[in-house]
């Protein structure tokens, strides 16, 4: 079974986010980079499929050269090969174009399953998985908290408001990962894994290598743009509830929530 993981490198979740001088982008100079947590879950889920069915796990990512480090980390976890789409033409491209590029890269890999994150924790766009599936003409199942395959289908559980559904798709199919660390418990790269990863193949591709016309995927072709960023409003300083004893504080808190905040 050939599994492809779509992996995005994102800023560490601890990062302080600052708006760049142009007001239209985020300052990246002092950011630490990690694999998007949901994509790390995807790598784990992909490796489990490989362990059961054999085959390969390929990591596909779009981004600049710094992303090589994250792809190598995934290779160290146990993935076999990597493809990095690094093309300046994609600078400022919208989600549709990125999804087209990712779909084109997947097409060359005769994949049975594509696994990706439900969202990347940077811009929280939450859309490229479903878009890639649509461009491939494949079924997709979103927000998996479990994933099983018998080699010709994939079955997931998907939490919905107030419950859970079990879904099945014929292969080839795309699955996006939901859940959290407790659900997927992604493995760490072992020391031998890190050594081996250095020698695993990692190809860099341009849009033309994927048979795409750069003009169609460029910033000029973007149907949507972020025109400005703004910081969230500062929360007014809060108040520590005082009182003689626990009961008095409890009383005061209930009063404040009822009379001042009017939320109770």
């Amino acid at each position: 079974m050939n599994v492809v993981v779509l992996l995005k490198q994102t800023p560490d979740t601890e990062s302080v986010i600052r708006i760049a001088g142009d007001g239209k982008s985020i300052a990246t100079d002092d950011l630490k980079w990690i694999i998007n947590p949901y994509d790390e879950f995807a790598v784990e889920a992909a490796l489990r499929l490989k362990e059961k069915h054999g085959g390969t796990v390929t990591i596909v990512s779009w981004g600049p050269q710094r992303v090589v480090e994250s792809v190598r980390t995934a290779l160290a976890m146990g993935a076999d090969t990597g493809v990095l789409i690094d093309d300046p033409a994609l600078e400022g491209a919208d989600s549709l174009s990125i999804a087209k590029a990712l779909a084109a890269a997947v097409k060359e890999l005769s994949a049975d399953v594509v696994v990706c994150g439900s969202r990347a924790v940077d811009y929280d766009l939450g859309q490229r998985g479903a878009m890639v599936a649509e461009f491939l003409g494949w079924p997709h199942l979103a927000l998996a908290v479990s994933m099983e395959s018998d080699g010709s289908h994939v079955v997931i559980e998907r939490p919905i408001e107030g419950g859970k559904v079990t879904l099945e798709a014929d292969l080839p199919a795309l699955v996006t990962m939901g859940g959290s660390h407790a659900v997927w418990n992604p493995r760490y790269a072992s020391l031998p894994g890190i050594m081996k990863a250095k020698k695993k193949p990692l190809a860099t591709k341009k849009l033309a290598d994927l048979g795409l016309d750069p003009a169609e995927c460029s910033a000029q072709a973007a149907k949507m743009q972020v025109t400005s960023f703004e910081m969230p409003p500062q929360r007014a300083a809060g108040r520590i509830i005082e009182g003689e004893d626990t009961a008095a504080k409890a009383r005061e808190l209930v009063r404040a929530l009822h009379e001042e905040a009017k939320v109770m």
Binding site: D124, K223, M224
Partner: peptide, 21 residues
């Protein structure tokens, strides 16, 4: 307007001429 970076920041989105939001 949508939150990005888990609400650490907000992005204003605009659509190109003729594009469907």
């Amino acid at each position: 307007k949508r939150p990005v970076f888990a609400g650490k920041c907000f992005a204003w989105c605009e659509w190109a001429e003729g594009a469907l939001p």
